[in-house]
Design a protein around this nucleic acid. Structure first.
Length: 302
DNA sequence: AATCGTTCCTGATAGC
DNA sequence: TGCTATCAGGAACGAT
C-alpha cells in the first residue's frame, strides 16, 4: 500500500526514466480512473504532446509538471496528479497487447524483466511515451485516481495538506505545534493528511512501535517525552524506508517492477501473533477507527 | 465545525 | 477439491 516512502520511491524512479518525454497516446480499460477531466477523450486530447518536465511528491500524491512543446507563451502549465491509493503502482517499460484473455490484457515484452511479478498484471491505464516506453498504472482494486490540473490551481489545492514530515523545516517544535489542540487517538491523528502528510496504516503502526506509544492513546495525553520519541520515530521509519525503496509485502512495486527493501525492517504491521522484536511478547491487532492497528501490548502501554 | 459511516473495488483468504 | 462469503483499506463524500 503506497505511503510516503513508496510514493517517493516511485517519484525517484520516474525522474530517472521519463523526464523530457512527451505523451503520445493513452489507453484505458477503466476510463473512470481519470477523474479530471471526467471525459476520457477530453483528457487524452489535453495531455497529448505535453512533455514531462519534473516529477515530484506531495503527501501520497505523485505530480508530473507538464509543458507544451514548443513552449507557448501565455499558455498555462499543466500538472498530472496520480494518487495510487491502495493497490496502484506506476511502472515504466514495454508491454505487448494480449488478445482478450481473462482479465490480463498486456504482458511484459521482456519475459525476464521484473515486470513479470504477479502484482504487476493489473494494467488499467497506459501512457505511450515518445521514446517507445510506456508508463502504466497497475491497480488491482481500481481505487487509484488520475487528474489533469492547471499547475497553479493544483498548487493551491495541495496547500490544504499538512506539512511534510521529512522536510528539513519540519522540526520537533513544528511537530508539537501541529498536534497541539488535536483530539482523538494518536494513530488516527498522525494518519490524517490535513495534519501531517504521507503517513498511512503501515508507517503509523511502525512509528508508534518505535516510539513505544500505544496507538489508542489520546494525542492530548502524550507526554513531552512521548512527543519527542514519536517525532524521531516517524522521521526514522520514513527515512529508512525511502532509503530501502519502500515496502513490497503486498502490491507495491518500484517503477521497474522490482520490490522495495523495507520488508525485513517491518516490526509490527501484519505481524499479529508473532513475537515483538524487543520483548518477545506477541504482537496484537486491534481496530482503531475502522482500521487495523498492530502493536506490542507490552512495549506500548496507554 | 467536527466526527462518523458509507462508498468505491476485487484478489486473497478463510470457512465449509 | 471447489465453491462462497468475508475482508482489506485511502480518502471523498454525505449524514448527523
Amino acid at each position: 500500500m503506497p505511503e510516503l516512502p513508496e510514493v517517493q520511491t516511485t517519484v525517484n524512479g520516474l525522474n530517472k526514466k521519463v523526464l523530457n518525454r512527451a505523451f503520445i497516446d493513452v489507453w484505458s480499460d477503466w476510463k473512470k480512473i481519470v477523474k479530471k477531466p471526467k471525459d476520457f477523450e477530453q483528457f487524452k486530447k489535453e495531455i497529448k504532446n505535453l512533455k514531462i518536465k519534473k516529477v515530484w511528491r506531495r503527501a501520497k500524491n505523485i505530480v508530473f509538471d507538464l509543458q507544451a512543446e514548443p513552449a507557448l507563451s501565455g499558455v498555462e502549465g499543466y500538472s498530472l496528479l496520480i494518487h495510487q491509493k491502495m493497490t496502484g503502482h506506476l511502472l515504466v517499460g514495454k508491454w505487448v497487447r494480449q488478445p482478450e484473455k481473462e482479465n490480463i490484457r498486456w504482458l511484459p515484452a521482456d519475459k525476464k524483466s521484473p515486470l513479470n511479478d504477479p502484482y504487476n498484471r493489473f494494467l488499467h491505464l497506459i501512457f505511450f511515451l515518445d521514446d517507445k516506453n510506456m508508463l502504466a498504472l497497475s491497480d488491482a482494486r481500481k481505487f487509484a485516481k488520475v487528474e489533469l490540473w492547471k499547475t497553479e490551481e493544483l498548487k493551491k489545492e495541495l496547500e490544504k495538506i499538512g506539512p511534510e514530515p521529512l522536510d528539513k523545516k519540519f522540526g520537533l517544535i513544528k511537530f508539537k505545534e501541529v498536534l497541539k489542540n488535536k483530539k482523538g487517538k494518536v494513530k488516527q491523528v498522525i494518519m490524517d493528511q490535513s495534519i501531517i502528510a504521507g503517513i498511512g496504516n503501515i508507517y503509523a503502526s511502525e512509528a508508534l512501535w518505535v516510539a513505544k506509544v500505544h496507538p489508542e492513546k489520546n494525542v492530548a495525553n502524550l507526554s513531552e517525552k512521548e512527543l519527542r520519541l514519536l517525532y524521531f520515530a516517524i522521521r526514522r521509519v520514513l527515512e529508512l524506508s525511502v532509503k530501502l525503496g519502500g515496502e513490497s509485502f503486498s502490491d507495491y512495486r518500484k517503477p521497474d517492477g522490482s520490490k522495495g527493501g523495507f520488508d525485513t525492517e517491518r516490526k509490527v504491521y501484519k505481524r499479529e501473533n508473532q513475537k515483538c522484536h524487543r520483548c518477545e511478547v506477541k504482537i496484537k491487532r486491534i481496530k482503531v477507527g475502522q482500521r487495523s492497528a498492530f502493536f506490542c501490548p507490552s512495549c506500548q502501554k496507554i
